[in-house]
Design a protein around this nucleic acid. Structure first.
Lengths: 334, 334
DNA sequence: TCAAGGGGCTAATACGAATTAGTAAACACT
DNA sequence: AGTGTTTACTAATTCGTATTAGCCCCTTGA
């Protein structure tokens, strides 16, 4: 159309016409006009092959991106990711082609397309350790949302500082007169749960108050509704130990226990360490706890990833502060 | 390592050694052994470049996919799209960066990345006719979610059969004794609204009952809350015409009118022809109407698009049946 | 002995951009 | 006029794989 060579188009397209290689402004305009008219876009695949990058960021989730049930757990993260992608001028590629094996998506599989993108944001409660190790070994650019333990090397991540948040809650409880606390939950296996429990255990021992660990009453991990029929049992153990403040790993567990105690007319302080999976408070009680800065996590993950891709990584492991929620359920000990 | 050519490796890798091109079993084993030893994996990028397509499906929305407010509207479509993408082994490229010109997003603009993908799903209440025409003219593969009129040629779409749904509701109203009906809404400009009104008008005239058309009281299109302060006016016209059943294009309009009539203690049947924009019924009345099969629309759009891309299009214009909601607001005429 | 007919493999090319070496033309300066 | 120097571009190569035309060698048959 313009009578120029492919090389010229490439140079114009990549805005290199001002540096070492120069193109006359008129020629450049002619090319740009033709591009605008035809809507031409460089093939990302060829681009990636030739240049090694294509301004596409992959988003890999271990569950569906657009979930049916647990209303938008990912949503806030994605808002942050999308915002940053837009300002960076990158497109987002949802790696939905990864097949589900044994109930979870696998990154590595025959025909995995991770390399189509310049880098990848990993989203999921728990990431497979072996896959992380392989990502590191293969030298692929990626960031995990949520802290991860080393996997044959340090894993780049942007996580929430659960340990600090829980610690702050414990401090508050102690300030309110509680000296007999309990952590209700598994404390694992994902790093996020472990961090919460560590925050509890460390703070309790450093403050010299009593802190016990209660496993949730419902052992089945797939069971919904948290504590389920076992609230009564948990309650018994809480009473027996003389606990006056409970830190519930799972929001639903905390809610159930709170309502149980309230029905019995016994005062019990509760802090929940996870956000409700479903929006809309069943009861309209605001639970004490903290808020995970999801949107910011998404945005910062993009920052880390960009830096990684461009070869000047700074602070590839970040923990963001959670916002404390005072709420109504963590109150002075009577 | 094995002393064979790159071509041989490619052939072995793709298991073509039994067809037209043949490789001796011993050679094949030697290659396979070397592959196993080195852990070699074909570069997916080069693979895609050679293959000519990239198994990327673009998703174009006239608004951001992840904004907090209107995500609920798109969500079900996206669930369907993602599900199908997964089973088709495609990745999804979010084309959210379209700039807003004259109050609406444009597909074609400087730097649009539409051609990145093999094809594209278009999502939005109303699509620009010229842009559709250009998509057709350029021979780009795409499907619209929602029926579209021809734009210099037939537009591939997967829509909801609003005409049939409204028709069914009108039939029900007549069966319940109503003979004086009204359609409350613009009946345009988008195809989806026109279809609803056509369903009403056609059915009313074929059944030989009276059916009038009432424009919504709030003329400003941007105004939220539907009928707003104009309910009273609408109500006057309904009374004056002796209408006993109203078909409200906009959900909010229907709700407002229903409540107005209820307050006055006058029986009035209402059917709403659009789903509420915000979840959570303000009042806990279940309105009569229908449900749009959004998730299925998303999935079938992917089917149509895939067929289009692969060059064997079948049924590129589909209307899916809506599920009728009996509800409590369309009742027997007293 | 020579042609015909496979089997088994490779050289060459395509895919679509990015990059680099190089070249022609214009210009500057002695 | 001769010798740099700059400007503005293009030809050629590269990335890693898929594909195809074709080559060589071994059989077979007359």
């Amino acid at each position: 159309m313009t009578g120029v060579s492919q090389a010229t188009v490439s140079i114009v397209l990549n805005g290199r016409s001002e540096g070492e290689v120069r193109i006359a402004p008129e020629t450049r305009d002619r090319v740009l006009r033709a591009i605008a008219e035809t809507g031409y876009v460089a093939d990302p695949v060829a681009r990636r092959l030739a240049a090694g990058h294509n301004r596409i960021i992959g988003v890999f989730t271990y569950e569906s991106v657009f979930p049916t049930s647990n209303s938008d757990f990912y949503h806030p993260f994605l808002v942050g990711i999308e915002q940053r992608a837009e300002s960076l001028g990158s497109d987002l590629l949802l790696l939905t082609s990864a097949p589900v094996v044994d109930g979870r998506r696998r990154i590595f599989h025959e025909g995995n397309r991770l390399r189509l993108a310049d880098g990848c944001v990993l989203l999921g409660r728990s990431l497979d350790r072996e896959e992380l190790a392989r990502l590191l070994a293969d030298g692929l650019h990626f960031v995990s949302i949520g802290r991860r333990d080393d996997a044959g090397g340090p894993v780049p991540y942007v996580g929430a500082d659960y340990a600090a948040a829980v610690s702050a809650l414990v401090h508050r409880a102690v300030r309110l007169g509680h000296t007999n606390l309990a952590y209700l939950g598994h404390g694992g296996p994902a790093e996020s749960w472990a961090d919460r429990m560590r925050g509890f255990t460390d703070t309790v021992s450093s403050l010299g108050v009593q802190g016990i660990h209660l496993p949730p009453a419902t052992p089945a991990p797939a069971a919904v509704g948290g504590v389920g029929g076992g609230v009564a049992e948990v309650w018994e153990r809480v009473r027996a130990a003389g606990v006056t403040a409970v830190f519930a790993e799972d929001h639903a567990d905390g809610v159930a226990l709170y309502q149980h105690a309230k029905q019995l007319g016994v005062p019990l302080s509760i802090a929940t360490l996870g956000e409700p999976m479903r929006p809309g408070n069943e009861s309209n009680v605001e639970f004490s706890g903290f808020r995970i800065p999801r949107q910011r996590m998404g945005a910062e993950a993009m920052d880390v990833l960009t830096a990684l891709i461009e070869g000047n990584p700074t602070q590839t492991q970040r923990l963001l502060e959670c916002e404390l929620v005072v709420g109504e359920t963590l109150v002075e000990r009577k």
